[in-house]
Design a protein around this nucleic acid. Structure first.
Lengths: 116, 116
DNA sequence: GTTCCCCTTAGAGTGCGCTCGAAGTCAAAT
DNA sequence: ATTTGACTTCGAGCGCACTCTAAGGGGAAC
């Protein structure tokens, strides 16, 4: 699959795919005879996971660290799990914060409704 | 109240308070005899609201727009409410997205637990 | 065969939201 | 009187995560 197709299917731009590869977030994308990138289904799955990490607010540096742990093999499973658990705690906290702020927003909107 | 006290109580830095004033997010902070900023309780309340908008992801440009509507008086109440409602919809969508991604995270963590 | 378009790399540029630095003022403490 | 330290303005700088440009290389379409 070409970089454009991979971009389409992952929701990332071709620029971003090259950037991710450059910083080590995607490792070993295949190349065709002309040296062009040739993405496999597996790459797409990995991109989908990376995207979840990003959209939940994990910094790119941490994603790199996680990727490096994965590359080092099964002896890093504990550390990887710990990273994800810390991240999960942050995501939960963020949801809680947003939910709180939502109440303030509701209140303000109701106030405006009353004044109109 | 001095800028340092206002920073302390709002959770923003003094630098950020000056920046917010410069871009029009805070309007008419009082000055004392020496020309130093002298924050009132009302300013703190406004800062708290601004902070809620920021932490829920409203761009600073939109916050400026909202502030300008407020400055223009009661005839902008409808528009202000509309802004907040659009923002609320985005916040709700964001919470839904985070909650979804949280499930994927849970799944992955459970997988790691199984492998350890 | 040449036009066209997408690909490659390496490095520079962008937008956002601050954050800091320089140069100067002022007031209280020593 | 002078040192200290917090304040002022204005403009420059920074960190993050891309995003784009330049220069060049295939390879399919006309």
């Amino acid at each position: 699959m070409t970089i454009q197709e991979a971009a389409q299917r992952s929701g990332l731009s071709a620029h971003t795919l090259r950037y991710y590869e450059r910083i080590g977030l995607i490792h070993s994308v295949g190349r065709n005879a002309s040296g062009h990138r040739d993405y496999a289904e597996q790459d797409l799955e990995w991109l989908a996971f990376l995207t979840k990490l990003r959209t939940t607010g994990m910094p790119v540096a941490d994603m790199c660290r996680y990727t490096e742990l994965l590359r080092r093999g099964p002896e890093t499973i504990g550390e990887r799990r710990a990273m994800l658990e810390r991240h999960r705690a942050r995501v939960r906290a963020r949801i809680a914060e947003l939910s709180q702020d939502l109440l303030a927003l509701d209140y303000k909107i109701d106030m405006y409704r009353g004044q109109e």
